[in-house]
Amino acid sequence: MDKKISRHEWKSNLLPALVMAGPVTLVLVFLVAVPLVYVGVMSFCSIDEYYNVVFKFSTENYVRLLNADYLKIYGQSLAMAFITTVLCILVGYPFSYLIARTKSKRKTLLYMLVIIPFWTNSLIRIYGWRTFLGTNGWLNGLLQFLHLTGEPVDFLFRQGTTVLGMVYCLIPFMILPLYTAIEKLDGSLLEASADLGARPFATFFQVILPLTSSGIFSGSIMVFIPCLGYFFVADILGGGNSDVIGNLIERQFQSGNNWPLGAALSIILIVMTLVLVKLYQKVGGDMDNLGV
């Protein structure tokens, strides 16, 4: 390695590489990698009586996380995320199929109409649901007007309401990749399948579904994982009856003030994410389909 870098080589390759890739490297190292490693370190720390973080190795936080109350919330959070994902597929698939394969001239408009609601802040839209579903909300007004119910029904503060809010927040992340996958579908393949005598049912399961599964997989990842962390949906619509893992973390970093315990909870969430992403790659999912 005694070959000195020539002035020319420095100017023609190293300098531009440094200028171009340097800033992004700094951002990813100092604002993503280092903070996450630090959370990992903190998860093995503890706190003193003034809630200060004490840097002494202990596994006490992880032992506390095995407590039955916590286990129940992990289970509940995973179950709600699963139901949310299934509902997003069941509603999102036929919907994406219809708008992606419509022959209507307004196809672009139909697509834009999925995105427009998301230009309004998500918190206030979730609050809109709360206004709609509350005991003196619109839905109860309608039900009483139609004499379907005498007493107002409390739709809020159940696990079902939280799931509804999660589906609402996350369904575009299912619809958009599905739309892309379905739009790419070659119509002549469907005709070929029909010509060869396949019934619509068989065409769907043997031709359409396998060709659009990439959309289902990436959509599922983009729906399932955020569900575990969306504490504000559970707060606004679930009212403490439907906490997700995100609520546990939020509490430790705000009111609970036990950062190392919150850090350990975050590590659990990171591990779950990594397992799901590995699973996604295993079924043939492409990382580049996520998040665009």
């Binding site: 990813l28 990842i221 973390i249 975050s266 996520l290 998040g291």
Partner: peptide, 22 residues
């Protein structure tokens, strides 16, 4: 660097938030 790019996209936002806070 390429691998790190995917982290903010897949990791739940709350984890990114508390990691930056700490």
């Amino acid at each position: 660097i390429d691998g790190l790019l995917y982290i903010p996209v897949v990791i739940p936002e709350i984890v990114l938030g508390i990691s930056l806070l700490t």
